[in-house]
Structures are given as structure tokens and as C-alpha cells.
Computed example of a mutant assay.
Amino acid sequence: MDGARFDADGDPTREESLSRLLGGGRTALEASIPPIAFLAAWLASGGALSVAVGWSIAASAALVVVALVQRRRPRAALIGMLATAVAAMVAYYTGDARDFFLIQLLSNAASALAWAISILVRWPLLGVIVGGLIGTRTRWRRDPALLRAYARASWIWVLQYVVRVVVFTALWWLDEPTWLAVMRAALTYPLVIACVAASGWVLFAAIPKGHPGVRKPQAPEEGRAAHPSAAPDTPADPA
């Protein structure tokens, strides 16, 4: 491989994996377990909302226990459990099973909007997330190449949320709670994995060849015009 593709620590910049930076596929896999449990219980019970909600919460609780045993923070599992409980309360209040998916629909719409705005204000959320995980924090914002790369890759995440919003809205409008349950499961793990792969390709493809990579943001060089004293000496005119 081209030596310019590697940084000082021997890590390849083009062969870097966004999935690895984000902690692998475990988060996406764990996020898909409660929706699958909901779908299985929904189908097995003939559309009994209370049964499906119970199994979904039980699956979330199991993930919390596993995370604690492995000495990991169970934040994602706890958030999933809370979201399931709130969604259930909404459905019970309205008396309409399809409204169980309203929270999912609205949260994806809000996420799409938040990611799009973050790009427009030059704070792409993918950069914020990756920078926090790898320890570069917000230094990437001073690097025009990384800022541009993170912005381009963040549009893939916007598209991910938009796909969910379109599908969920159509099925909610058609009053298809069974298909909502199916698509909620289908658009969790597979879509997240596809999003990470696509945005990772866009991110690293947008980084110029020879750049040391996301782990080593580069501040732009100061122009010589701003530092006249740094300009090379020119020979004096002969007398």
C-alpha cells in the first residue's frame, strides 16, 4: 500500500473503518433486538399490543443486564426501554395500535432535521460523534478537508432517517400496525449497517490523499501574507 495512506501510528487513513470508530456493529445489533422481540410477540399474539410491548421491554431489560455484567454503560438499552414505555402509553391513550409507532416516526423526523441543520451550520454531527469517540473532540472543524468530509458523510445519515420517516408515515397513514412492526425491525440493524458502510466510504473517499486521517486533524497553514517577516529575503538592488 501507499505509505502516504498511513499516519504516524501506522494506522491506514483510507482503510480506517467507520464501524470500528463507532464501536463496531454491537450497538446496531442491540438496537434491533427490542423491535424484533416486539414483532415476534405481535405476530404470535395476533396483534396484542400489551404482549408485544411487554416482550420489547423485557428484551431491553435483558440488554441492560448484559451490559452491566460486561461492565458497559447500558445507556442505549435504557433509552430504548424508556422509548418503548412512552410509545405504549401513547397507544393506550389513543386506543389505536398504530400510534405505538408515532414516537419512532417523530424521533426519526427530528433526527433527520437535526443532522441536516448540523451540516448547514458547519457542525456535522458525524464529526461531533467521531471526534468525541477518538479524542480529537472539535479540532476537526479547523481542518477544511475533514470538515468537508464529515459534512458529506453526514448527508447519508440524513437519508437514513428520511427513509424511515417516509416508510413509517405511509404505513401509519394506511393504518397498518403489523407492517409498521415489520418495517421497524427491518429498518433497524440492516439500515444502520448500510448507513455506516456508505457514510464511511463517503467520509474516507473525501479525505485527500496524503492527509494523515481523522485521528490527526490539520490546521490550515498560515498565509505568508499575514506574516511578512516570514517571507524569504530578496537580494538588494545593486547600488
Rank of each mutant, 00 (worst) to 15 (best):
S199Y: 02
P144F: 07
T136L: 03
S17L: 10
E16M: 13
P74F: 07
D143F: 08
W172R: 02
V128W: 06
F204Q: 02
A112D: 07
D7T: 03
V167W: 03
W157G: 02
W201Q: 09
A198H: 02
F101H: 00
L126N: 02
A151T: 08
L146K: 04
D175G: 03
A230S: 11
L171S: 04
R215W: 08
G3E: 13
L68Q: 13
V192Y: 00
I36T: 12
P74E: 04
A197H: 05
P12L: 11
I119V: 15
A91W: 03
A185P: 07
G213Q: 08
R215S: 11
L18E: 11
G131M: 10
V53K: 02
P35A: 00
V51F: 04
R122K: 12
V182K: 01
H211N: 01
R141G: 07
I129R: 04
G3V: 10
E221V: 04
S45W: 06
W115V: 01
Q104R: 00
A149N: 01
P208R: 04
L21N: 10
W201V: 08
P144T: 05
D9A: 15
L106F: 12
D99R: 10
L187E: 13
F100Q: 06
I36L: 15
G132H: 05
A110M: 14
L43D: 09
W172A: 00
V202H: 02
G210C: 07
A85L: 12
I117M: 04
A40V: 12
I207M: 05
F168D: 01
L180W: 02
P235D: 15
W172E: 01
R142G: 15
A230G: 11
G210L: 06
E222C: 11
V64I: 07
S111V: 09
A170S: 10
L191E: 03
G131V: 11
A61G: 13
P34F: 11
L147R: 10
L21R: 00
D233T: 13
W179E: 00
L125G: 07
L43E: 09
A231C: 09
D2G: 08
V69C: 12
L106M: 11
A226Y: 06
A8T: 00
A231I: 10
L191S: 02
P124A: 13
L146R: 00
W42Y: 11
V51Y: 00
R184G: 05
A41K: 05
A110D: 14
L82F: 15
D99G: 14
T94W: 06
